[in-house]
Write a protein that binds this DNA or RNA. Sequence first.
DNA 1: AACCCTTTCTTTACCGATACAGAAATCCTG
DNA 2: CAGGATTTCTGTATCGGTAAAGAAAGGGTT
Lengths: 353, 353
Amino acid sequence: MARVTLQSIADRVGVSRMTVSNAFSRPDQLSGALRERILAVAAELGYLGPDPSARSLATGTTGTIGVLWASDLRYALADEVSARFLGAVADELGHAGLALTLVPASVGGAVVPARDVAMDGAIAFSCDPELPALDWLQRRDLPLVYVDMVAPEGEVAITIDDRGGARAAAQHVVDLGHRRVALLTSGYGPEPGVVTGPLTASAARHRVITERLAGWLEPLVAAGIDPLVVNQPDDYSSAPLAAARMLDRPDRPTAVLCLTDVLAQSVLAAASDAGLAVPDDLAVVGFDDHPLTLRTRPTLTTVRQDVDAKGRAAARALLRLVAGRADSSLSVPRGRRLPVQLAVRGSTVGDGS
Amino acid sequence: MARVTLQSIADRVGVSRMTVSNAFSRPDQLSGALRERILAVAAELGYLGPDPSARSLATGTTGTIGVLWASDLRYALADEVSARFLGAVADELGHAGLALTLVPASVGGAVVPARDVAMDGAIAFSCDPELPALDWLQRRDLPLVYVDMVAPEGEVAITIDDRGGARAAAQHVVDLGHRRVALLTSGYGPEPGVVTGPLTASAARHRVITERLAGWLEPLVAAGIDPLVVNQPDDYSSAPLAAARMLDRPDRPTAVLCLTDVLAQSVLAAASDAGLAVPDDLAVVGFDDHPLTLRTRPTLTTVRQDVDAKGRAAARALLRLVAGRADSSLSVPRGRRLPVQLAVRGSTVGDGS
DNA sequence: AACCCTTTCTTTACCGATACAGAAATCCTG
DNA sequence: CAGGATTTCTGTATCGGTAAAGAAAGGGTT
């Protein structure tokens, strides 16, 4: 049984192939009666609508947007905050009838997804600017939006105010009178453990880390505080261990600022194990406003970012870029830096009871 | 400036277009020297490789696999366990050079992604068997793997032993001597709150819920226990409230079996707020072995499922189905039900101290 | 009745590649 | 050195659609 195509339907109905195409794609181009007849025959033959690949070739649009992810997808998605971002993007694109394709960053094998997968545009999320896969996307001249990373000059970047948020977090613990402060990060340099010597931007594997570190330092330095910096191995399952070791030191900090809420939760667990009361013996601040911050006890003080808004902003900016390709009179979207907000909860300030 | 195509390269080099095509896609079909020359010219002209859409049309393969998701992507992805599954699938497909496309379930507008997006196969993950978008995928006759849901007769299904896991969890609390047991679920019927009357399979909105409820009931009924069943609204942020109300009842349960670990974490929080000691006053059991189970204090007793393995199994089964389309002599993959394991931790059994 | 405008359908020309069969050149083998 | 096997490259047909302009038929206006 040969495959059903526009042609076979056209033959059966006795019209031109173009008319059948219009019946599906441009209903206003033919009479209602004929359209009905064509659709009836199509249904009878089991035709499902125009072949996506063929249509892509003819129109030059694919109906899907790519997302290039920093690291191994397996780990990236296991973070609820990133996942929510992705969900928001997918949702927003879905409204525009676009699907979302996760583009593996691999460039080794015969197939290089960043080069070989069809898409109308792409979002680079939180990835290394040097990533080879990103280079492919750029060379393809696809509409591109950069999220949570440094974008090339003139490109559209969506970020949050990481530095301002970190600054507020650090100021908060300084205002509470803490003098021995630890910074718990990850992805800073190659070695886990206590970081000695001055902090350098180049050691951070990511813009987000650089910014948050810089933000934390401002109020601390102003207050004459020299923080203990601890670098956490990427493997999150060992986080409790690193946190525990930090709390075991003779100069144990009274406040810990953490790169993410998940790291902060590990600190809460370690504090509990060490018999330390939070916030009286130890204040803990996270970052991101992960949903879990409300489920921990005490609840977690954190810097709130609106990931949904970030996802929507990225999706919308990209949609405008894509539209701008077809109609150059449209205005070009501009990058945005979304505000953040310190959310003070039980892990830094007791309820007074 | 006209676009660079195979033809323009062919003209420039002075060979046939077909030879240029082979230089990219089938290197063994031409001499190394010529291939070098062609690639050099291609690079010079800024050619990036064959156009994905055109190649799709000619070869009939697209290089991407679709994933159809149960609910709104925004919420679905916000669950770390689902996200990890997706990550594992993406990772496994990535090794085979395939990208992964999230297919929005929308079927309302002009574009129906499940019908219009090009893909080589699809995974239906945990969705309503009646979903219209799923129907489109089936009608397209795409290779399809069903995960965590009831599959049509003869189709490939990957599931876990939800019932057995729930049975083990319930048996565990029975063995510990608990007699007042609560079941905390969600997605059961339309109304949140205490469920009265007999449980029915049809009220559950999902196979997973049905199975876990059934598994819990077996040991409970055998022990003559009539559990308190509480249905949680889907909005996870209200979970603490529902849990708190459950612990406020005069016939407060001494053990709670939860549909997921996230729900269980809410119960831990509510217990803490109510001044109840876990596990002495209240035992809590989750489901899934979410990474957070190790970060809570006490750590959470749960039923461990291997989401990575589930993802890999689904991806591999689908890859085999896809390969089978091209070569019908290949064997057809069979469905699998992956085992689970009770992980006893601090939320049911104290450390003896 | 002449004219122009719509509506409705068709014609022609691509979109950018790959499949497959065959032709020309080269290489062995005995 | 004949003859078959290889290697290397080309020609033709095809994948399944859409864009854009043109032709035919009907409708209203003056």
